[in-house]
Simulated scan of single mutants.
Amino acid sequence: MKLSRPVSWFLLAFGVWSWFIWITFVKNLWNDASGLAFDDAGEPTAYFWVHLALAATSFLLGTAIGLIGLRGVRALRREVGAAGTAGSPGSTAGKAGSGGSTSGTPGSAGSAG
């Protein structure tokens, strides 16, 4: 499957956003003084564990989505780079008779006796 440039960049931006948002959320959760995340004895509450699991899951999914976007962006850059060099002088890409044979005899490369 080939991703378009806008979709690839969106997915990559989503992954970066996820790192920023969820790491900030966990820091705030850890430093919570409202009594929701930690009880009076300083022990984590169910609220803490549920939100930590939510943050970890969202962080992992955001990372996976960001990696998909990164792969899409890198593939598009390779494609643009390959298209830019295919038509350059001295390139044999797409030319007739450029089957990789150096002997000058058509059909001699890769033929089995």
Rank of each mutant, 00 (worst) to 15 (best):
L67A: 10
A55M: 06
L76W: 12
H51N: 15
I23W: 10
H51E: 04
V16S: 05
V16E: 05
L12W: 10
G62M: 04
G113F: 12
G69K: 03
M1Q: 06
S88V: 13
D40L: 12
G97I: 00
R71A: 12
V50Q: 10
R74D: 03
G110F: 14
D32I: 00
R74Y: 07
G66K: 03
E43S: 08
T63D: 11
A75Y: 09
L60T: 02
R5P: 04
A64N: 06
L29D: 02
F20P: 00
A41E: 14
F25K: 00
S101V: 00
W17V: 01
A75C: 02
R78E: 15
I68G: 02
V7T: 14
G84S: 11
A96N: 02
I21L: 11
L61R: 03
W49F: 15
S91M: 03
G69M: 05
S88L: 15
G35Q: 05
V50H: 06
V16R: 01
T102L: 14
V16P: 04
V16G: 03
M1Y: 14
M1S: 10
T24M: 08
F14E: 05
L52Y: 15
F38L: 01
P89L: 10
T92E: 13
G104N: 07
W30K: 01
W9H: 08
G90M: 08
G104I: 06
T57I: 09
I68L: 14
A37P: 09
W22H: 09
A41M: 09
S18N: 07
G62F: 10
N31H: 11
I65L: 13
L67K: 03
T57V: 12
G42Y: 14
V80Q: 14
A56N: 05
L3R: 05
L3P: 13
V7I: 11
W49I: 00
G72I: 01
F10P: 00
G94Y: 11
T105K: 12
G94C: 03
G113Y: 09
A109E: 08
V16T: 07
L60D: 02
G90Q: 06
A55C: 04
A56M: 08
T102V: 06
S4A: 11
A56T: 11
S101A: 14
M1G: 13
G81A: 13
S101F: 05
L54Q: 12
S111D: 05
T63Y: 15
T105P: 04
S108L: 13
L76I: 07
V80K: 15
G90V: 05
K95H: 11
R77A: 14
V50I: 11
T63K: 04
D32S: 03
G104H: 06
A37L: 07
L36N: 10
L11D: 01
S18I: 01
G66V: 04
S4E: 14
G35I: 02
A37Q: 06
W19P: 01
S101L: 01
S34A: 02
N28G: 14
L76D: 07
A75H: 12
I23N: 10
